[in-house]
Design a protein around this nucleic acid. Sequence first.
DNA 1: AAATTGATTTCCGCATAGTGGAAATGAAGT
DNA 2: ACTTCATTTCCACTATGCGGAAATCAATTT
Lengths: 259, 259
Amino acid sequence: MSETFEKDRRFASTLARGLSVLRAFRASDDGLSHMEIAERTGLPNATVSRLTFTLRELGYLSHAGKNDRYRLGPAALAIGNVASASVSFLETASDPMQKLANETGTLALFAVRDGEKMLLVKTWRPQNTASIWLEPGHRIPIFGSSSGMAVMACLSDAAFAALEPDDDLRSFRQTGYEQLLARGFAVAPNDTRYAASVNAVSVPFHAGEFGEPASFSCGALPEMLGDARMEEDVGPKLRDAVRALETRTGRSPALLKRG
Amino acid sequence: MSETFEKDRRFASTLARGLSVLRAFRASDDGLSHMEIAERTGLPNATVSRLTFTLRELGYLSHAGKNDRYRLGPAALAIGNVASASVSFLETASDPMQKLANETGTLALFAVRDGEKMLLVKTWRPQNTASIWLEPGHRIPIFGSSSGMAVMACLSDAAFAALEPDDDLRSFRQTGYEQLLARGFAVAPNDTRYAASVNAVSVPFHAGEFGEPASFSCGALPEMLGDARMEEDVGPKLRDAVRALETRTGRSPALLKRG
DNA sequence: AAATTGATTTCCGCATAGTGGAAATGAAGT
DNA sequence: ACTTCATTTCCACTATGCGGAAATCAATTT
């Protein structure tokens, strides 16, 4: 019994389980063993075995040698490339974001909401500074992250209500909204930050391609990126970069979509 | 009944069907309607409906507005990015390949074998020349394509035999092998080319990450890229680019792995 | 507004595909 | 050879997914 909460008749759980196997991979993993997959997904061994067989058969996973670990295969790559090609703004964003990462020495990233979490879709590491940190595929909590704050702030009241938010999340969202109105970027209040080891600024972005608002962020260790620098340096730069992107790709600011 | 031929007890067909829905998307599609998905996958409507519901639920597909078409969603993007991050050579290859595409005015691409077909994983279009053509996610036949020839030539005899090749494919492979030995790149013989409208040269590449040999290619319309130019200009350039890549990423030439 | 057409979703009884505990196999160590 | 740990296979059970058909929903036409 996995953590699936769907019991809708329309929900194909085998498919969901199979995908959860693919989702188990992180960019930093140098392949996963069978058992690691079972642990990460919470699926029983026998099930993982059948699913990996299928995924391998279809090219989504590969098993270099006989007893090697699993890796994402060519088919996964292809889907990703098709997806990126159809999400044109990411390509457009890539250059300025890489530049921003280099200039500010922070990790730039693009994230979307995925259920209860923020899903990191793409990251740009600064080329000089070392900042081994979050990677694509990683999920961070909405509450307490600046990207979560930016995204929540842009949700319409109805969409937000659908999440059945508690009071903390409500006021978290409210703070985000005020910050965005005031200066166009969001920073999670110190006392709510989900990880003490990470400071980040975020700017929401309305990616028509998926229904959800999403966000661009810059993050780094607090030593490198104190509150002052977020407010005065990195925040404004990120905001301007995202505004430029909105102009180039012909979108209106995400906050306006709140409805 | 789709074209699945697996009847192995271990094969999870619901998962395979769900993935075939994702696979139905091409980079050029501006979203797919429900019915287009049904057509492309050969699945009955009701089934597509349940599968898209699930995929939407999980973020692999998105449905911008109420009655909009389906697009690949954030989760698909994320998987792809995880996959690309773990396939480091593609990143390394990106610059030289783009350069090669520009210099030669051809479409450069990277493909892997996926079952009976060659699966285009990534493409680099020349920036000046117009060459709207194959896209990531597209599949082309092995027989008659230069990339197929390059890949077949690098397969070990055992692996090749496992494909149950006919005589045509055997000699196709043999030709490829000889070409690669002689000058390091492969061009499909004129009379076997699978599409008259496409000329291409390929060089195999051993991507340890997936078990399969893969290939880099340059292709264009025959008017732009005659046999002579393939032999004397583009072929050698591509071969040298791939050799340089092998050196940089510390791999031995794919042909040597044939065993 | 009623009628037509066409796409999409829901219904629901049935057969089968998928499940997971347990046992068998396989791979490393000691 | 023995122990331990990872992976695959077996198999009886039943929940799951199937797909034809009917019901909705949307967009046109009359």
